[in-house]
Design a binder for these strands. Structure first.
Lengths: 207, 207
DNA sequence: GCCGAAGGTGAGCGGGCGCTTAGCGTGGCC
DNA sequence: GGCCACGCTAAGCGCCCGCTCACCTTCGGC
């Protein structure tokens, strides 16, 4: 089982490889602002201010406000695909791999809710080209989960009537965690991950 | 089982009781615009234009753009509560009532996706007072579903470890339909409703 | 010590935003 | 027929948006 690295150190660890430093600070500021208020309600002055810079500094590192969203979205989706791919390619039965995929995916959405919210809910604010690129990454997410479920069905481990529909529902359940999860609420990301892994195993009729 | 009235006649039937006529046309125009582009990306000129009126006409019927969102949100949430209350108060076993609640709630989110999208995803664009009012209606939704699940557990029909967590997951699953459902996609609202009712019965371990 | 590149700032442009106001056409009432 | 309340429009106000530009440091290389 993967560790909950995303929850440690305040969510910014995922952006470590973004350089230079000023560009990273702007990106982190944009993630926070977009998550709190939404893309269209966030101003470039707000982003620059959070990063401790003047409004004009933003345009040294990014061509437009939309480019910021695009970069955030791509990095986030690549992380999501990686989480699911690692779980899908792991050892163990289909049930164990599905439980691992769901629990780690849910932990990412709950623990890194700020990032996940932007990644999952601001897709429509991208232009056509950028959106098409991101949608390809989302299809990869779907394929990883569907692969595990197909394995389970083929091995006689799962009892599923509609594989594609069930895949959609599993991903939907995980993604929506980013909408309702509250850091100050009664549940930790680990608890929600464990609960959801159990619920998903029931959904696929795991023996 | 309730009929899928929402899908008939092009989604606007739910606004029939809004008067006068011009106010209703503006409300319907606002729902479409908010669903397509989001609250903050929608301009009052856009709403008025869709309703075939000048920008100033909007302010004869509504004090602000936010009041439009508030009215849409309240009417939509009242409809959601009603759907769940009817299902919860119906006759039959807990499993039958839960399946009815899920399938009709999902049909509403899928068939009336335009409305549901605004209702479920633009909550944060409301001011504090309006949001508090709407959150009270959402707690009623939670209470209706939790009630059915508690009944099923008490009757020995269901096998649920975490009633509140499972309730949250069931509602989350239904609500997220408004995000991904595509009218031009391969599934009808009825098919998704039936699939989801089955999945939810598995989640609660219905006998 | 001088220079150019890199990274930053303050001021501000053009434009579109939410919303207001003065005035116009029209239908119901006496 | 006169009148006014109502629903609506044309014009536009003040503001803030995304973004640009002229200029200012700082610093490594020689």
């Amino acid at each position: 089982m993967n560790t909950a690295e995303e929850t440690a150190g305040g969510e910014t660890s995922a952006w470590g490889e973004v350089t230079p430093d000023a560009a990273r600070r702007l990106l982190v500021a944009a993630v926070e602002a977009f998550a709190e208020r939404g893309y269209h309600a966030t101003t470039t002055r707000d982003i620059a201010g959070r990063a401790g810079m003047s409004p004009a500094a933003l345009y040294i590192h990014y061509k437009t406000k939309e480019e910021l969203l695009h970069r955030i979205s791509r990095i986030g989706h690549e992380k999501a695909v990686e989480i699911l791919r690692v779980a899908a390619a792991g050892e163990g039965s289909a049930a164990e791999r599905l439980a691992d995929a769901v629990s780690s995916f849910v932990r990412w959405h709950a623990g890194g809710r700020t990032t996940a919210r932007v990644v999952q809910y601001e897709l429509d604010s991208l232009g056509p080209d950028a959106r098409a690129e991101i949608l390809a990454l989302r299809r990869q997410c779907d394929a990883e989960v569907r692969g595990i479920i197909e394995d389970g069905v083929a091995a006689g481990e799962f009892d599923v009537l509609d594989v594609q529909g069930t895949t959609l529902a599993v991903l939907s359940l995980c993604i929506d965690v980013a909408r309702w999860f509250n850091v100050k609420g009664p549940r930790t990301p680990e608890e929600v991950g464990a609960l959801y892994a159990d619920l998903v195993l029931r959904m696929v009729g795991a023996k």
